[in-house]
Design a protein around this nucleic acid. Sequence first.
DNA 1: AAGTTGTTTTTTATGGATAAAAATTCACCA
DNA 2: TGGTGAATTTTTATCCATAAAAAACAACTT
Lengths: 297, 297
Amino acid sequence: MKTDTVFKRAFNRTLDLMVRSEIEDPLPSENALRRRLGVSRTTIRKVLGELDQRGVIVATTRSQVEDRQVLPNDYFPDVETMPRNLHIERQLMEWMLRGDTKPGTLINELELARQFGVATSGIREFLIRFSRFGLLEKRPNSGWIFEGFTKEFALDLFEIRVMFELRSARLFAKQSDHSPLWEKLETLKRAHLDLLGEIDHRFHDFSSLDNRFHRLVNEASPNRFIDDFYDIITFIFHYHYQWNKRDEKQRNHAALVEHLAYIDALLSHDLSRVEVAAGAHLSSARETLLESLLAPS
Amino acid sequence: MKTDTVFKRAFNRTLDLMVRSEIEDPLPSENALRRRLGVSRTTIRKVLGELDQRGVIVATTRSQVEDRQVLPNDYFPDVETMPRNLHIERQLMEWMLRGDTKPGTLINELELARQFGVATSGIREFLIRFSRFGLLEKRPNSGWIFEGFTKEFALDLFEIRVMFELRSARLFAKQSDHSPLWEKLETLKRAHLDLLGEIDHRFHDFSSLDNRFHRLVNEASPNRFIDDFYDIITFIFHYHYQWNKRDEKQRNHAALVEHLAYIDALLSHDLSRVEVAAGAHLSSARETLLESLLAPS
DNA sequence: AAGTTGTTTTTTATGGATAAAAATTCACCA
DNA sequence: TGGTGAATTTTTATCCATAAAAAACAACTT
């Protein structure tokens, strides 16, 4: 049966809102709550029902929001709020990228399903979805082959990334001066400078900044295939660097500086400067990835 | 339950081999047959069992191959040899590309499953697989949105195609003179000339030639993401032009001529000629697609 | 000992069942 | 009359069962 992670997560989020007094005494309407949490009204009603049952609110009037203090114990444990497919994704990514899974390994849906404690259909869906990343290949009526997260893969990936990034950067630089994206770029530049100032203890924040920056560059001239490709990059890097923390601070510091040069080049509207700065940044990103592939932590 | 299309197709193919006397009196071993047909021995045994049952061969000795003439009636009908997933694919592609399905339409798995007479899991798998083509988007816990096979889609597609093709063509032209691919290109050129001579009645053959040519260009410097992207192109064009035959002969004739110019440019090793010829060919391919989108047959 | 055929086990493809979540419908009221 | 709460219907996510196909194993033959 379907998991009730949507309900449990919504429940926890509601408790949070109550604790932080973002939900005040006359409880908001179900529709308002629904919009706030991004779930259906059906789920909200289930949450309210549960809150009532536990005596956290009084249902009849609903004017008394906190009938009693919210206790840490009221929250559902985090595992129970994670959708099944995310759970499968995590485990499979770990199995593929982190473990010692060799290139050429055959994937057995049934065995993985047993190992991870889920039904085969979940595994199947992930494999189909994931096959677009170029790390898996299907043999009909037989199984799947894991191609391996290899140097060749990284090189293929970066060749495309460079093509796309240069194309987008050029188009970005050529934009009209009135484009609102220039403003956004300035904001991002400031965020970079802020982070640079506190790099010692905030270096983890780089990753989201990185993402925002590269997405912004693509925004000037959107192309769905480029966006899709950037999804692949984000996905792969997210998992890869999650388990590979070697030199993280140093890496991020260097990338931050490169970004700033790249941003300034864009702001200058000087195409050749842009190409040099973007190229330099991507080269060093590639080197970083290759290094970590050859000498895994 | 799983369909037995693999068995039925293997059975038909075996009958074919017998009729064409490619299987002679002392029947080949099960393993030899297995390799020949690309199925498992289990399936071959089932085929042989069925042939025996129907009296087409005599099992005890297996020396008498044609115990009786093969009758047209012995063949399983074609529909029964088509794998379920291909069946689903065909129907869904027709629904999306050919019918009057508007951009923004919500896709209902259950309804489609009923409409096509299959289980929802098949629909789901197709949708997940197909979502990488950029025509569908998923809303978790809700449904899918069909983005529409629109002009914007075609433009996005061709922008990438041009980038990839120029990149591959350049690298092809820069290959060493000893590369075996030059030989292949010459062969392909001859095939083009042959087809050009008989274009009046063989114009349908262009499509496979087109495929071979563009794949060959990519072979000089393979990149899995480019290959994957070319799969998308092939897939979309296959279905689109299958239902859009307007001016087919004329279109193919023009493309053939463009290919020849492109091939000659490659053979000349002259990079700027290559770029011009490739660019010209892709532009006209784009125009053709856009026209057919705006004025569907 | 390699290649065959016969048998058993494992795995994939596909339909179907069901709880959760979403969507829709209904009734009511300020 | 639009917004709110309640009830009902529809759809998705997920597991499970089973036939088909593949793979592994065993026994035999030349």
